[in-house]
Design a protein around this nucleic acid. Sequence first.
DNA 1: AAAAAAGGCAACCGCACTTGG
DNA 2: ACCAAGTGCGGTTGCCTTTTT
Length: 216
Amino acid sequence: MGRNPSGGEKQKLKKGLWSPEEDEKLNTYIKSFGVGCWSSVAKKAGLQRCGKSCRLRWINYLRPGIKRGSFSQEEENLVISLHKILGNRWSQIASHLPRRTDNEIKNLWNSTIKKKLAKTQESPDSKLLLPKSVVAPADQTGMGSGVEGGTSGMLSTTGGDVSVSASSGENCFGKSGMEDFLQLIHNNCSGIDEEQDFSSMISGEELDCDYETGFF
DNA sequence: AAAAAAGGCAACCGCACTTGG
DNA sequence: ACCAAGTGCGGTTGCCTTTTT
């Protein structure tokens, strides 16, 4: 099924969806011996897969602590905010959303958020419809322009939304300032799990921040 | 009920970067 | 300094499921 073209070819690396048996093999091997070199993991675990494929499967699916299922509104808003700052740096965005993978976030963005944003932008009152988090300084093209400038800006976290805005029309993050900003978000989010309501952690605060110095 | 379209997701591909010899 | 292998990342593809017509 799917993309499993391996059919008759012997000793050729398998592609396509992973079977439960393969998952089990990989899981068992890594639990016993750890990761090490991925290309050897594949061989030693007895899998007809390339190392890359094993790594991907482990990171996106088998790794303990992965949170699966739909994203909460707060998580979506956070992704939008972070995307404003970081652009398509999914791994960095993922690092600020505990237990979510970059692939998952990328899929969320491409399938859900993109469309939502497109819809809201069609509307004349689009800004009003967007989550507060979308009001951010970096331009839409990605993070490039967002990091070099260095003026003051504002982070506000209200009712589960995290938003950033600049006091100038252009960039608001110095290099160190952005790291501090991301660290702040990371700290705010680090305790999230299924049992905990995200919004309760970041609600009701508004922080002035000089992104050049990194001080709030 | 069947077909078509849309949505969601898993995984491959290729490039860039890192590391070790 | 150079090269090859390994790894990480983002873009993209294609399958499966769900929704709509």
